[in-house]
């Protein structure tokens, strides 16, 4: 569970997050909002790349903001990026192993976890290939696999479905849905694909220009007028 209190982020005159208060309790939680709403900014605060001007963030009882980015990884925080960050000159296997390197996992256990993660996202047959050889879909899946090793507690995914075909998106959906049961973490999922959010996230948070718009069961949230107006650009 992520508890956010009075969170404000300010860059000069811009406030990408303005006094945000919310408790994200869904196992798979959606995060939507128009471009520039502050979604990525919130992820950057959670992973420690942005120090907020004010506020508190609590993950499963741990005060997150006092920890360094690396320490947060130790505690099970994982993330992907809006622009994928697969390392081209590492093998697929090593791209995942690189994360376990710093968690003090024994070699045999590391092999087991990397294997399981790669099987899970369907990249086991590509394990020996270089990151550079992967297509976009495979890169996105590899980023997810990276998040599954080393006892993850909170996964932050920033538009993992961007640029995927319909059938790829379907596999992504199935994969995301299966993660909590198989690996245990809570997921915070940003995506512009409302279908994906609706299919995977039991609850969803909507931001608009750094402001909290609403939070609740995804279907209800999507039906709200303010969301339709702000996010879907529909006149109601």
């Amino acid at each position: 569970m992520i508890r956010i209190e009075n969170l404000t982020v300010q860059f000069g005159a811009v406030k990408p997050l303005d006094d945000l208060n919310v408790e994200l309790d869904a196992k798979i939680c959606g995060l939507i909002g128009p471009n520039g709403a502050g979604k990525t900014t919130l992820l950057n605060v959670l992973s420690g790349f942005i120090t907020p001007k004010a506020g508190r963030v609590d993950v499963d009882g741990t005060d997150l903001l006092s920890l360094s980015p690396v320490r947060r990884v130790d505690l099970g925080l994982r993330r992907s990026f809006q622009t994928e960050q697969v390392v081209e000159d590492l093998s697929v296997y090593d791209n995942v192993l690189a994360l376990l390197d710093h968690l003090g996992v024994a070699r045999a256990e590391a092999r087991r976890q990397v294997s399981k993660a790669l099987h899970f996202v369907g990249l086991d047959r590509e394990a020996h290939r270089m990151g550079a050889e992967l297509n976009l879909y495979q890169r996105r899946m590899l980023e997810i696999a990276r998040g599954l090793v080393g006892a993850p507690r909170l996964l932050l995914f920033d538009e993992p479905g961007a640029g995927m075909t319909e059938s790829e998106g379907e596999t992504l959906r199935e994969t995301l849905l299966a993660i909590p049961d198989e690996f245990g973490p809570q997921i915070l999922l940003i995506d512009h694909d409302v279908e994906l959010i609706l299919a995977t996230c039991s609850k969803t948070l909507v931001l608009d220009f750094g402001q909290f718009l609403t939070y609740g069961p995804t279907a209800d949230v999507l039906a709200e007028d303010i969301v339709k107006r702000a996010y879907l650009g529909v006149d109601v």
Binding site: S47, G48, F49, P69, V70, V73, D74, L77, R78, R79, F81, Q85, V87, E88, D89, L90, D94, L97, A98, L99, D101, H102, L103, R146
Partner: peptide
Amino acid sequence: KPGRAWAMIRKDDRAAMSAGVN
């Protein structure tokens, strides 16, 4: 291990940090 960490850093500082690289 150092080579993997270096490759992550070359890719992107933030990506490296979110892989636990000091």
